[in-house]
Design a protein around this nucleic acid. Structure first.
Lengths: 348, 348
DNA sequence: TTGTAGGCGTTATCAA
DNA sequence: TTGATAACGCCTACAA
């Protein structure tokens, strides 16, 4: 912004017309028809001079900045943030808008400053994102700005939100294992009382019950959701007399731990024990051996959904505030097979 | 931006002074001393009304938007992007600036559109980031805007850039292994002809040579830098008659493959073979067992460096355009030990 | 079909 | 010490 860019005035002067005409022509103002000759002349000189309209001035005049803010608690520590940003950005770009990304690091004062900085810049709306699925309330400063919550359920009424469908995810995991023939299963859940752990357990159990799997045949344990926790929990599960032929892990990192436990116990994956993860974390699910079958978290889609609904809200084109739970796809790799292999191994 | 915010005019009216006075007071304009009573009255009413200056208008007037753009080829697929964003953002926030983040996905047309969208918004400068260390030239549209390259060496003169110090990284890896006592080493390099592979090899070899390790005792192989490539390469290395007691892997994903190879060969890490990775990729280096000793890539620091130099450039406070190679720290975990263990194992 | 002029919210110059 | 007033770059009645 240092050196002066070319303005509409220069274009007008160069083309020998008024700035009104230039504005009319370049913006294709409806109901205004310019002389083809003038039009061409204007367009030519605009192109020649490399004229680019100043959106700051436009925004000031039109009261619309074509800018949204994406504020999240942690942009750095999670591999999911990128997908979310990307989704939001994709719809933004399609509307010639662009997004400010700011990360708060869970610090309240940083969040306050950043929200203020965004509002100063007259953002049209804000995407308030959480990096793990939780419930949260609307920061008071955002009360008067169109806002959509992403990966967080907003407890303040009237604010749309979008989160993963945890229950469906749990059901899908059960389904994958069920259809491979497993009837004796384990679930290593997370220890925290968050929507993800509640929902996945609910869906998993419900689907299993529907399929007639006896409650005795599904072992649920809870652990810290990292490789260490997964390792310990899986070991506990796998040394049981009637050990499960398949384990559903709260997330891919837990699955990493389960892999190690299985290896130490000389259990092969998937022949002796099938594993299903959650998250489809790049470089983890795809990097361990054998490739991990897992449920993907719909971060990209949530970014898209949220941005679209935000723009609708900004343009006042949506009735009330809907919210959504999005389902992620099952990513099939090589950690699940039918339990016959396991039985064979045991019989041998 | 929908509903009208309170403007300086309203504050002035409410306080019974002119907008000039309000501006003077609120901005602490040097050389202007207001009557303490007036000052207090103005500040009070501004606070009461919740006045927040409109940066769009400010920018229009001052020709400075306090906004920078961060444009990268992929924001989503890599876990490093976040750190980079965070670093840039941290210095931006300290200057009351905020950053537009856009990702191009390696598509030229997307890049063009996004750059234009940024320029339209009068960003003060641009951070042009690559997600892997490479060389690149300056997009012509950026010629007239302050720009700094991040994680890419700009081939166009006059543009500052900051990249990881690959040579130092290679040396550090050698150092770690050397000081643990290893004298017979392997290096699984990347197959691509990029600064990272060249530099790390150079540094690694140089340090080893300095330490008097015979060229015969350092085996270098190249592989696809993922777990599969790492697995195959490590296997090749480890079945040699005089197998290396330690392997330096091009990155953590390669190291994952090396772990598997070692396990299959019944070689314990680190007792039988020490492993050093590169990248310090979250959830990989820390998730595998034993924890991977690795060299961190300085993404956060590069973000900081680049943003700081960008702001300096914007403010015209730096002489010429320096560039930098930043060194990442060695992250010690548990995959390296002295080779005696290995010898013992062999002798047994 | 084209042009004039006012205003979006600020800052900055110059008077008073 | 305070206040008019002219930009900044653009859009948009309204007038010609």
């Amino acid at each position: 912004m240092k050196q002066r860019r070319v303005t509409i005035k220069q274009v007008a002067a160069e083309a020998g017309v008024s700035i009104t005409t230039v504005s009319h022509i370049l913006n294709d103002v409806p109901g205004v028809r310019a002389n083809p000759a003038t039009r061409q002349r204007v367009e030519r000189t605009a192109a020649r001079l490399g004229y680019v309209p100043n959106r700051l001035a436009q925004s000031l005049r039109t009261q619309r900045s074509n800018t949204i803010g994406l504020i999240g608690d942690e942009i750095a520590t999670t591999p999911f943030a990128g997908k979310l940003i990307l989704g939001a950005q994709e719809v933004a770009l399609s509307r010639e808008a662009v997004v400010f990304v700011v990360s708060t690091g869970y610090q309240r004062d940083v969040e306050d400053r950043e929200i203020e900085e965004l509002l100063r810049r007259q953002v049209d709306g804000i995407l308030y994102a959480s990096m793990f699925h939780r419930k949260a309330e609307l920061p008071p400063q955002l009360a008067s700005v169109p806002t959509v919550f992403v990966n967080a359920e907003c407890t303040t009424p009237g604010v749309p939100w979008v989160v993963p469908d945890e229950v469906a995810g749990g059901r899908d995991a059960a389904e994958v294992l069920l259809s491979a023939g497993h009837r004796r299963l384990g679930f290593i859940n997370n220890i925290d009382d968050i929507p993800a752990s509640m929902g996945r357990l609910e869906g998993f159990s419900a689907r299993l019950a529907e399929a007639g799997v006896a409650a005795d045949d599904v072992a649920v344990v809870a652990a810290e959701s990292d490789p260490v926790g997964g390792y310990a929990a899986a070991k506990k599960l796998l040394i049981r007399p009637r050990r499960p032929t398949a384990i559903f892990c709260f997330n891919d990192r837990v699955a990493m731990g389960a892999y190690r436990a299985a290896t130490e116990l000389r259990l092969r994956i998937p022949e002796d024990v099938s594993i299903v993860g959650f998250d489809n974390q790049e470089y983890v699910a795809d990097g361990i051996f054998p490739g991990l079958t897992t449920i993907e978290l719909p971060h990209f889609d949530m970014g898209v959904w949220a941005a679209e609904h935000l723009f609708n809200q900004i343009e006042g084109t949506n009735g009330d505030a809907p919210s959504a739970r999005l389902r992620g796809p099952v990513i099939h790799r090589d950690s699940v097979t039918s339990p016959t292999g396991a039985l064979t191994a045991v019989q041998r």
